[in-house]
Structures are given as C-alpha cells and as structure tokens.
Design a protein around this nucleic acid. Sequence first.
DNA 1: TTGTATGCGTTATCAT
DNA 2: ATGATAACGCATACAA
Lengths: 342, 342
Amino acid sequence: MPQRRPRRTRRPVSIHDVADAAGVSPTTVSHVLSGRRPVNAATAARVRQAVNRMGYVPASLARSLQAGSTSVIGLLIPDITNGFYAELAKGVEDAAHHIGYSVILCNTEFDPAREDHYLDLIRGRFIDGMVYAAGTPPTEARLESLLGRFPIAVVDEDVTGLPQSLSAMADHYQGGRLAGEHLRQLGHRRAAVLTGPALLPSAAQRARGFREAFEGDVIQLEGTWLEQSGAELMLQCLDSDGFDRTAVFAANDQMALGALAVLHERGLAVPGDISLVGFDDIRVASLCAPPLTTVHQPAYDIGRTATAQLLQYVANGEEPPTSRHLLPVHLEVRASTGPAPA
Amino acid sequence: MPQRRPRRTRRPVSIHDVADAAGVSPTTVSHVLSGRRPVNAATAARVRQAVNRMGYVPASLARSLQAGSTSVIGLLIPDITNGFYAELAKGVEDAAHHIGYSVILCNTEFDPAREDHYLDLIRGRFIDGMVYAAGTPPTEARLESLLGRFPIAVVDEDVTGLPQSLSAMADHYQGGRLAGEHLRQLGHRRAAVLTGPALLPSAAQRARGFREAFEGDVIQLEGTWLEQSGAELMLQCLDSDGFDRTAVFAANDQMALGALAVLHERGLAVPGDISLVGFDDIRVASLCAPPLTTVHQPAYDIGRTATAQLLQYVANGEEPPTSRHLLPVHLEVRASTGPAPA
DNA sequence: TTGTATGCGTTATCAT
DNA sequence: ATGATAACGCATACAA
C-alpha cells in the first residue's frame, strides 16, 4: 500500500500529478507529450490543458536515466579566453545545439587535477561524449583508460598509438612549413622557434615543419601556450650572448603577442629588425600593431566537424569508428614579416 | 536457440553488480563509497576491491535524480568569442568548479529561439541554476516566468521591475560618465554615440551617463553589440550630410573596433581627426592600433561574484534573496583619444 | 484507446 | 553492522 509522499518542500509538478488532474494514467500523459502512440483527441486535449494549467515540465533527469543518455557532451579546453579555443567552442556548441545536445564547458587552465575532475563526468556517464582539446602534455596517460571505452573526439592534437576513436586537427606540420618557407623566401637564415610543450605532437610538428622548410639556422625554446610564456622566451633570446636572429616563429598567436610586446619594449622594429610569425590566426592577430603574419587554423570548423562526427554515432548509440581528420591551413601574410635586414 | 547475452548492449557496471560480486547489499556498497555510516573494515575492503576490479563508477544521473539536484548550472551568453563574455565565462567556471559544480555553455548568438531552448534546461530541472547574461532586448518577457521560480543570477544587465533574485553588473552609468568627462576635458564638443540595443538598460545607461557628463552636442545611433554593427554605424555617420563629430563613444569594444576599421579605411586619423572610446577593455583593446581608450569592466569578477552568490544558496537548497551588486569601472586612457582638432 | 507493472541506478528510511 | 524496501520521475513492454 503506497504511502503518500512526505511533501516537505514545494515539490515540482510530476507526470503523476498531471495524470491525476486529467483523470488519466501517467502513461497517457507521456504519450500525449511524446506523440509516440495515438491518443484520443478529447483525452489529449484534457491532458494538454492540465499540463498548461499546472505548468508541468518533464524532469529531463528522469528521462535521461530511463533513456540511458543525457544529450549532453563535454568540451575540455585549457583556456576559453584564448580566441582559438573560443572559436572552437563556438563550433562545438553550434554542432551540438543543432541536434539538441548541450555542452558542458570544461575549462582546465592547464591544470591536470581539473582535467581529471572533468573526465570523471564521462566516467560517471553524466555526459554522452567528450570533445577533448586539452593542450596539456600527459595527454596519453590521462586518456588511455578512456579511449575506446567512451565516445571521445580528440581535437587539435595528434595523439598516436592509442585506441582513439575520432580526431580532428589542423595540419600542424604543413603550417610550420608555410611559416618556414615564407621566412626563407624573405631571405632569413637565422631564426628562433618559440614552441609549445615539447611532449605535445602538435607543438613538435609545427616546429619540425618549420625547421624542414626553413633550412637555415634554428634555435628552439620550449614554453607553454601562454602569452606570458612567449614574452619570457623572447626575453631569454634577446638576453643570450651573441643573439643574431632575424626571425621568430611562435607556436601560437598568444605567444607571438607576448614576444611582440617584448620586442617593442626593447625598441626593436618589427619587421625591420626582426620578423615575427604566429600560429592560429585569432582575431587579434589582424588587429595588433603590426598586424601579425600567421598560420590560419580553421578553429570553428575543427570544433564543428569533430562534434558532428562524434554525435552522429553517439546519438545512435553506436560506437564511433577510428578516424583522423586533417584540416588544411594557410598562411596569412601581414605586416609583421619582411625581408631579412642586411 | 540459446541466448548468448541476455543484455542487448554492454551495460555499465552498477552498484548492484558490485554488491553481488562482493557478497553484500547495494546499501553497503553505497555506504562504503560515501562513508556516511560505519562499515566493517573487512567488508569495506572486499567492496573496494570489487569496485576497482570491475571499474565501477556511480551513475551520477541516478544520484542526481535521487538527490534532486544535478550540480550543474547554465551560463547563458550571446557570444563566447567576445572577449568580455569569455572572461565572464572563466569567472563563472572558476566559481562553479570551486565547489564542484559544472557549467553548461548556453551560447545564443543573440537568437531568441536558442535562448528559449536553453532556458528549458532550467524548467526541466536539468540544471540547478542559471547565470543569465543574454544581451538581448526582450530580456524581461523571456525571464518573467522564470525569475522567482528558479535560481537565476542576472548578470551584466540591470533588469528592473522584476522579481529577480540575484544580479551583478558593472556601473554602466558611471562608465558612460567617465568616457564623457574624458572627451569633454580634451576639448571635444560634438560627439557620436554608437549604442547597443536601446531596450537594454545597460546600453541606455552607458549612453545616458555619457551625455550627462559630456554636456555637448551628441548624436546617437543604435546598433547591436557586434563589430559589424559598429562598422555600419560609423559608416552611416561619416556618410551623413555635414558630419562634424570629433569624438565617438562606442557602447562596447567590439563596436569600437568595427568603427576603428572604418575610420582607417576612410583615411581618418585616430585620434588626430576623431577620438574614439570603447567599453569593456577586452584584451585586444590594448593591442590594437592605436590602443583603445576604453572603460574597464571587471568581467571575470562579475562572473565569479554572481556565480558564487548564486551557488551559495543553490547548494544549500535555499532560495536566493534579491540583491544587486554594482561593480566599479574605471577609464583606461590609451592612444585612441586626444585633444579636439582646431 | 488506455492502463498496469517494471526498470533505469542510486540513496534514504526503516528494520534487524 | 548490514539489509530490504521504497522512493526519485519518467518511459516502455505487456495487458486489456
């Protein structure tokens, strides 16, 4: 004999309440709302009226539990204030919203603990999938227990040797090559490369592409992806004995902006004394002074593509196949690069 | 024909499976994991071993259903690629993550339908609360059915005459005044104001503050918050008969950047011919050419404060009180403003 | 056309 | 110290 609910707090209206009010069973209410089976017109009208009068909204939580999926995915990125990730996020959100999914913003600030915390969302099945663009080195160790067991799209990073499902990234190597060729054709022979974390394939590929196309004398300094890091590395360069570089390739635009600020501080002309190339082509790259020559990356498309791919399978309860999307890049030549000084 | 697998799909390990494996009841497993009541050490060890061996992770969905809350909030904003909202989002995420909450990114692109869709998340109780920074005019109609019934913090907007719970915003009026005073002191007497949507209190307050402090001849053009809109309004100004303004106040930095691009295109010097002031102080404002004089808004703090306030009550199951936080602004004087031309 | 019973996976309540 | 049972609120297989 069912006991009446305690009713301590103002409990939300449930499907049961509506059913009682309309004089039907919860099943019928459910079907009126879902349309998954025919309901007598008059009955349906009564139910709808009760729904409106009582302001009933189905508890999506209960619905999700029953359905076994939440229609929510995660987007794991290191820094939403970086224009690249913001564009990426927009692409992810667009693709997700397009088929009724929502996106949890997992902003990690490059903090492994925070990353782990957010990965627990998928372990606990609160999210149906994850778009993973961590930007942190120990990517593999952190992911290996997840890939293959959960729907994850690895984005912007070329994680190899793992049972990964989906991936989408820009052609980092080719981007590096474009930067290198450009500077070589301008007559530069001695360059500095301010890279991202050496353990990241993306950072390594950009640097390698640059070196192979530049074919000159290259010194390489490792940093994080942050503006601050670009500034520090640039300072380190300038303060080293016998610094003689005429060109700098920064692993992303944020670092390039940091480097640019330092060059300005030191009274060095860009590109008069030193040419500077970035990577990403975030909005500010075309607005800063001088406008930055940089490798354009289709951030929005990367996010949109990866998410659409992921959800195509997740939404059907299928297991995503292994795939690797390589998106094209191109060089945006602006005013931060010029002929090598004599 | 014998059935191989009774289950259609590989079902995740449940608390029941662990209980069976450990030879205890689900209740005990639950208590071992939560520590909410004493469990025999040996029993607990057996349970923990089973948990590890089977890779059990509690279904947070079921947990949420039982608990009546999800530990997720929404963040509704129009445009994550706008540096202001990105900073705001970072503040929200920080405050939420700090006490174990996650954030759903509700990016609306100023689309009312999309906004409504996301507001349904709170109606369906999939999220415990919402940080609302829509930036769209019909804020009130859209919100009136929600405020007071659900935990919502209205951010960056001064919604008056509504049963709102929490709100946090910059001092828009004072910001407008700072811009107006600055230009007046530089000798400007004729200005153009490129405002945001007239129906938005924030936009109206910024414009009013400007007019009251500037005390000169002001023409006012209404736009959206977008860069494109700033460009269009600037063009419209320049092409009007007898245009004679020496200063422009844009309602936000994005619009200022749009206006700046148009001024450059037309060969007008900034600030030589026209001085320009923005609002927000997003990162690019200090990097563009010339660096933009602008009203600084504490975007990160607005997000963090509002979220911390909201969650303080939500996490305790209490109803948030009505409150209104007004955060201070200040003027960042850079190179886009100068003395009025003779 | 409609209703009953059951399950989704967890935790709180009550019992032992 | 541990377990059985009843919710949480919905959807669905099965019955009528």
